[in-house]
């Protein structure tokens, strides 16, 4: 099963490429909305690129309002990976 470190690494690489973030910006506590300034359009595009990265469907269970920080995003993907594993 994919490790959390691998999830973090691949998520960060994907977000850096799509949204032009620096490594320094991508700390787990970073707020998606306030620190990374991702808006509702970005949220949709983020799902598109993460789905491509991980080969899973994120959009059904995805809810930006419950996902505050980057860490929440890692958790969400990790949980999804576990579910897939089962």
């Amino acid at each position: 099963m994919i490790t959390r470190d691998e999830i973090i690494k691949r998520t960060n690489e994907t977000l850096k490429k799509e949204f032009e973030f620096t490594d320094e910006q991508l700390v787990p506590s970073a707020s998606l909305k306030d620190d990374l300034c991702l808006d509702s359009l970005d949220a949709v595009d983020m799902v598109v690129v993460l789905e491509q990265q991980f080969g899973v469907t994120l959009r059904q269970g995805y809810n930006l309002s419950t996902m505050v920080t980057l860490n929440d995003l890692y958790d969400f993907i990790e949980n999804l990976a576990r579910t897939h594993q089962k």
Partner: peptide, 10 residues
Amino acid sequence: LELIKTSDFL
């Protein structure tokens, strides 16, 4: 269709 981004349409 899952590859379509909002920025494509915009």
